[in-house]
Amino acid sequence: MPLLRKSSLLGYLFGLVALAGFFDATYLAIKHFEGLAPNCSILNGCEVVTTSSYSVIFGVPVALMGSVYYLTVLLLTVAYLDSPKRWKLDSAAVVVCFGLLATVWFVYLQLFVIHALCLYCMFSALTTTTLFLFIFFWWRHYRLLITV
């Protein structure tokens, strides 16, 4: 049974949000490897945050991890839109839950430890929260959307 339109539309929106997150994280990762500070016009803590000792975990830049994370979510979403299998949705949900945990940690670090906010990082927090809300809704209404 093919997907209902409603679920499909939700899937495309979800994919777009993941894509936006991917570009955001990739931009930060590229800046990290180039050794340049990202352009920050609104909030003025970008270089403080992106060069802090928390920007690298076990030698891997956090931005690169974010980039891989968003790409994983994006590919799972597209795979699901291509042929809807429950496991793809479940996997995406698990990955996004980890993403949300990481987001909470990074926002905590920015607010209470580093005392500086980075615009790109906050944008990423927004995209991951959005993804989580989507997943939450999607998951709860899965049956409703698929089988009518």
Binding site: L19, Y27, L36, A37, P38, N39, L74, L81, D82
Partner: peptide, 24 residues
Amino acid sequence: LWAVVVVLVVGGVWYLSRGGGSSG
């Protein structure tokens, strides 16, 4: 669908690494 995704991802990364929208 896959083609659009691949083009968006690869094109986006290429644009960003060329210094798109940056201080580069």
